[in-house]
Amino acid sequence: MLVETKNLVKRYGDTLAVDNVNLAIDEGEVFGLLGPNGAGKTTIINMLLGLTKVDGGEIHIFGKRVNGNREDVSRQIGIVPQDLAIYNDLTAAENATFFGRLYGLKGALLKERVAEALAFTGLSDKATVFPKKFSGGMKRRLNIACALVHHPRLIIMDEPTVGIDPQSRNHILSSVLELHAKGSTIIYTSHYMEEVEELCSRVAIMDQGRIIALGSKDELKELVSSEDRIVVELAGVNYTLVDEVKKIQGVKDCLLSDSTLTILAVQNNSLISQVVDRITGTGAQVVSLSAQKPTLESVFLTLTGKNLRD
C-alpha cells in the first residue's frame, strides 16, 4: 500500500471539508479523485502533502506517517499544483533545476533529469525561455515538468488540465499514461469525467467532503449498470404512448417531455426492439433512438442527484 488514509477529517469552522475519508492506493495505480469544485479534493491533497493540519484520522505514505515525517515523505512525491506554480523570472530550465535541487538532486544527474523532464513535456527547445513568453498550455506543461525532475514514486496532479487548449490537454493526458507505463503511481484529481475514465484504474467519487463511491471504473459502473437508459426522439406524439411503453416488462420508468421519451429499464437485450414496436404501434414515429451505457457521470448523477458540472 503506497498511500493509506484512515478516517481522515478536516474542519473549517462548522463545515466538514473532509469527512472520514478512507483511501488505499497501491503502487503503480493511476488513482482518480473525482468530484465537483469544493468537494474536498484539494484539501485531501494538501493533507497528503502535510501542508494542512489534519483534524482527525491518519495518513501513511510509503508506510510512514506523514505527520512528523513530512520532509522525509515529500522527498518522493511530485506535486503538480492546481494553480501554476512557476517563477516567471526564471527560465524553464532554471525553474526545473530549482525544484530539482529542493529535492536534493545536484550535479550531472540534476542536469540530466532537467533535460529529461523538459523533453518529456515537450519543452526542450524552450529551456532558456522565460515562462512570461509561454502560452497557457506550455506553462501547464512546465508546471508538470517541475514535478518530475526528481523521479517521484508518487505523482499528485491536482486538476492539471484546467483551462487549456485541447492539444496541450491531449499532450498532458498521454504523458500521464506514459508515466503510468513507467511504473509511477499517480493521484489524479479532476472534475472532467472523460479524463478520469480515460486515465484511471480506480476512482473515488467525492461530494461534500465524503467519498460516495470507490472502486475500479467497472465496479462503479456496476452500481448503475442494472439500468439502461433509452432516449427516443419522436414525431407524432400520442398520449397513450407512455402507458403503452410502461406495460413492457422490464421498463421501470418512462418520461415524456415535448417529443423526447426517456426510458429507464432493466438491462435486457431485446428491450429496444420491443420499445420500437410499441411506439410504432401507437402511430407515432421514431426519429432517433439511443441507448446510453452507464458512465461515471451517470454514477455521480445517480448517487447524488446532481450533475458534476453545474
Binding site: L49, L51, S74, L84, Y87, L102, C146
Partner: peptide, 14 residues
C-alpha cells in the same frame, strides 16, 4: 500569490 511558495512548501524544504 503566484503559488510558488506552496510548491516549495510541498518539497522537503521546511
Amino acid at each position: 500569490e503566484d503559488r510558488t511558495f506552496y510548491r516549495v512548501m510541498s518539497s522537503p524544504c521546511s
